[in-house]
Design a protein around this nucleic acid. Structure first.
Length: 864
RNA sequence: GAGGACGUGGUGGAACUGGUAGACACAUUGGACUUAAAAUUCAACGGCUUCGGCCAUGCGGGUUCGAUUCCCGCCGUCCUCACCA
């Protein structure tokens, strides 16, 4: 329990971190170590952690990814790069409004207070930010630029307004984008999302579907997982669109000459078509509904059924047989019935399909249910067409049958040929269909960037003139009733039309808050510019070389930001298409959960451990220990940042967060773990302080032991450098411990020069992870100036290679001996040495040696 | 339903490109120091063993001189998307 952890007191043999950490943070700030400027003469490196939403307070779980960015920044700086490492606040969002509703505090006040709190917390842990570049996206000097961008997008045809069925979150009282609906629920509220028909602003992300997909190939420093998720989200499929003419019958006089357009990925199965099905929101379904209350009711029912996993699994596939039928485009005289079906989505393809029961499972189920014919048109490559029972034949390596001019063709050839025919007939075309849909950016909320549009009864949609930007949020708003305060504001929305001067009204929706985070990385390049950013600055700094954030943004933010970069390029803002060259997705910090016997969550510091290991609360009542879960305020399994920094120091917390667990995996925060790191930090301190007297000792003639120490030192430099390059922080920590363990063993007998080199170098190596301690030790070692400005050590290649190698000796694959042999030992000599081993002879048990495999420097395997 | 990842001691994890499995830690146990504790420090720490070894990287096969690593089939855990035509 954290509460049982002693507060380490300062003592002569203990590192006084409280004093030292504050002192060195001040020294970095005074020297402006992390203030950078555009300098094309120097190589640049841009490190960025996903900026936080200022929700209240940070706990130790938040700090992990900032520490990773800090380690990279300090390391790259030592390697000579001009490193940009900025921090800011993703400051628009619903929690501020909820706080306003609950507590009567204005969202702006709430937000800026949280920014002050969290900013101070971040400064406690010694992060290498250029604070001069701090931005908050709720500031008009930030959001004015995205209003301009939106107007530019509008001019470029990348923004449009359209009435469509959208996802409505009934708890947040706002629309959500498709990316923000997870298993049918709002991504933040968890409420079941409803479908509503609303007029909304969209950004044309689909214009870049192909570019965004192709771009994924170039992102070779992104996790494979994220690339795959994005590719799946974009969801490219090749197929055909084709039009079925509505059959001219007595029942369909009013649809004469009209067509039903469908999308299919299996145009080759067209001869097996048994029906057409359209979405309940298809224009034809709506027209039919207007005439027939039964159809209207069926359509409404389809919209009521949710899209959650449970709803989909249990919902029956329902069809409503309309009075319409369509003519098969290739089979004269064949008419197919038209159904309205609850499983056809208006949002994908054309909102209509043709059903081929023999070769699609869902179509087969539907056909069996409604007694439709099942006609096999693809047979297995070798063999006859099997009788279709309850399972469709969906393999695509078959051969076409019962399909007229397609008979005998393989599926891919048949696809090609049938599309050719459809194109000749003028009833269809080859198409590429994406799952990706345009990004709906309108939100019916106050605390966001106003959409700079005026609705005029005469002129329609009129952009706010650029000279009038920014459109500022009004301060005087009330949250005493649900809905959008901007819409209820007494005066704000009433304006004159900029064109004709008549009474008009402002757009009262604000942008999705993902709008702000879609370009902030560029704003950091010129945070005080009166333009969105300066071209010279973004040309130098972008793309971000190392981006660090949570996997939860694998699609949402990362896709929006990639799209924005394409769109900004098209509008002439910048010259790149991919904003983030390298991406790292870090794991979460977890902690045990505690529950009192009354069922209430308890904070770790409210829980005590008795001698027998039982857990109790302050009153001595038993406490149930739950499983490790992501630190979260709601379950109270959080450890306060200040608590840890005051008890152990920032460096101890930082090193703990970098140790043991690989950075992409979850990390368990434990009291014993932090204790262990604290002990290690003190050992490092003592190692240096106690070695100081020996540094003055004259260098003796270097003997074997000194060379061994230097070898270990230089191997550590090489390995640690490689680990940092590859984001293997846990291994880097292990290597540091190997080095310091060795130095502790030899310090008392090492010669001055060797010890000096080793301790100086070790101090530089711990710098990225333990920056305060490193400065303190650097000073203790007698150096002037700041360690943070020291160059990274370079390993001497001669010291990376030993004179001898340890080779394993196996007999039939089993280890029987190890041999210390000269590095350049010949294969013959190695073989002889191995065979001479008594253990080898014994293991052979008198058998003939059939073969000896020698892998230089590694292994000798005797096969007998 | 589609796609993907992972599975190593009591625990977190290491093992380069197929080459000595368990680095580095945490926990535990025992010893030293101490009036005692804390701190520090030394040692043991996968299992079994007749002390020669044997068995061990989820399970079963395969390839190989040699497999935690490659291939096939299971089992389990996790993630993403999902009525996508």
């Amino acid at each position: 329990m954290d509460s049982s952890a002693p507060t380490p007191a300062a003592s002569p043999d203990r590192y006084n971190f409280l004093d030292a950490e504050a002192r060195w943070r001040q020294a970095w700030a005074d020297a402006g170590c992390f203030r950078v400027k555009t300098d094309p003469a120097r190589p640049k490196y841009y490190v960025l952690e996903m900026f936080p939403y200022p929700s209240g307070k940070l706990h130790v779980g938040h700090v992990r990814n900032y520490t990773m960015g800090d380690v990279v920044t300090r390391y790259k700086k030592a390697r000579g790069f001009n490193v940009l490492h900025p921090m800011g606040w993703d400051a628009f969002g619903l929690p501020a409004e909820n706080a306003a509703i609950a507590g009567g505090v204005h969202p702006a006040t709430w937000t800026y207070e949280n920014i002050a709190t969290m900013g101070a917390q971040l400064k406690l842990i010694g992060l290498s930010y250029d604070w001069d570049r701090e931005i908050a996206t709720c500031h008009p000097e930030y959001y004015r630029h995205e209003q301009k961008m939106f107007l530019d997008f509008l001019k470029a045809g990348l923004a449009y307004r359209k009435e469509s069925w959208v996802n409505w979150d009934p708890v947040e009282h706002t629309v959500l984008a498709n990316e923000q609906v997870i298993e049918g629920r709002g991504w933040r509220s968890g409420a079941l999302v409803e479908k509503r028909l609303l007029s909304q602003w969209f950004l044309k992300i689909t214009d870049f579907a192909e570019d965004l997909l192709a771009g994924i190939e170039t992102l070779d420093r992104w996790p494979e997982r994220v690339r795959l998720m994005q590719a799946n989200w974009i969801g490219r499929s090749e197929g055909a669109r084709l039009r079925f003419a509505i059959a001219d019958t007595d029942e369909s006089r009013d649809f004469q000459g009209e067509t039903v357009e469908v999308f299919t990925t299996r145009p080759d199965t067209l001869f097996g078509a048994a029906f057409c099905a359209i979405s309940a929101n298809h224009p034809i379904a709506k027209r039919l509904g207007e005439q027939d209350p039964a159809i209207a009711e069926f359509n409404a029912e389809c919209n009521r059924i949710g899209t959650s996993e449970a709803a989909i699994e249990t919902a029956e596939k329902l069809g409503y047989r309309t009075r319409l039928s369509v003519a098969h485009p290739l089979v004269p005289g064949l008419a197919l019935p038209v159904y309205i079906a609850n499983f056809v989505l208006m949002e994908y393809g054309t909102g209509a399909i043709f059903g081929c029961p023999a070769h699609d499972q869902r179509d087969l189920d539907f056909a069996r249910k409604y007694g439709l014919p099942v006609r096999t048109v693809v047979r297995p490559q070798d063999g006859e067409a099997a009788e279709i029972g309850t399972e469709a034949f969906t393999a695509t390596d078959g051969v076409l049958v019962n399909s007229g001019f397609l008979d005998g063709l393989a599926v891919p050839d048949a696809k090609r040929k049938v599309i050719e025919r459809l194109e000749t007939l003028g009833v269809g075309t080859k198409t590429i269909q994406y799952r990706l849909r345009d990004w709906g950016v309108s939100r019916q909320r106050y605390w966001g960037c106003p959409i700079p549009i005026i609705h005029c009864p005469d002129c329609g949609i009129v952009p706010v003139p650029e000279s009038e930007l920014p459109v500022r949020l009004p301060d005087d708003v009330s949250f005493d009733q649900p809905g959008n305060p901007l819409d209820r504001h007494p005066t704000w929305k009433y304006v004159k039309c900029p064109h004709c001067g008549t009474d008009a009204r402002r757009e009262t929706d604000t942008f999705d808050t993902f709008f702000e985070s879609s370009w902030y990385f560029a704003r950091f390049c010129s945070p005080r510019s009166d333009k969105a950013f300066e071209r010279a600055d973004v040309d130098y700094w972008l793309p971000v070389d190392q981006y660090i954030g949570g996997i939860e943004h694998a699609i949402l933010h990362l896709l929006y930001a990639r799209f924005f970069t394409h769109a900004l390029k098209r509008c002439g803002y910048l010259g790149i298409t991919e904003p983030f060259a390298g991406l790292f997705t870090q794991g979460m910090v977890c902690h045990e959960t505690y529950k009192s016997d009354a069922g209430a969550w308890l904070y770790p510091e409210e829980v005590f451990t008795k001698d027998d290991g039982a857990h109790v609360d302050a009153a001595g009542h038993p406490v149930a220990v739950g499983r490790m879960e992501k630190m979260s305020k709601s379950k109270k399994n959080v450890v306060g940042l200040e608590t840890i920094v005051e008890s152990y120091g920032a460096d101890t917390a930082r090193l703990f967060l970098m140790s043991d667990s690989p950075p992409e995996r979850d990390l368990e925060w434990t009291a014993s773990g932090i204790e262990g790191i604290w002990r290690y930090v003190n050992r490092l301190y003592r190692l240096v302080v106690e070695s100081r007297p020996r540094l003055a000792a004259p260098g003796t003639k270097p003997d074997e032991a000194h060379i061994a120490t230097r070898r270990i030192l230089h191997k550590t430099i090489a390995a640690l450098t490689e680990d940092l390059e590859q984001f293997r922080f846990n291994r880097a920590v292990a290597r540091l411990r190997e080095l310091s363990n060795h130095l502790e063993d030899v310090a008392a007998k090492a010669d001055g020069a060797t010890l000096r080199e080793a301790l100086d170098t070790m101090t530089v190596l711990i710098g990225p992870m333990l920056p305060h301690l490193a400065e303190e030790l650097w000073q203790a070692l007698g150096h002037d100036g700041l360690l943070v400005e020291q160059p990274w050590p370079v390993a001497d290649p001669d010291l990376l290679r030993d004179d001898t190698v340890t080779m394993a000796v196996q007999v039939n694959g089993k280890l029987r001996a190890t041999l210390e042999l000269p590095r350049d030992v010949s294969e013959d000599a190695a073989r002889e040495a191995a065979l001479a081993q008594p253990t080898v002879q014994k293991a052979l048990e008198g058998r003939q040696v059939r073969k000896v495999i020698v892998v230089p420097g590694r292994i000798i395997n005797v096969v007998g």
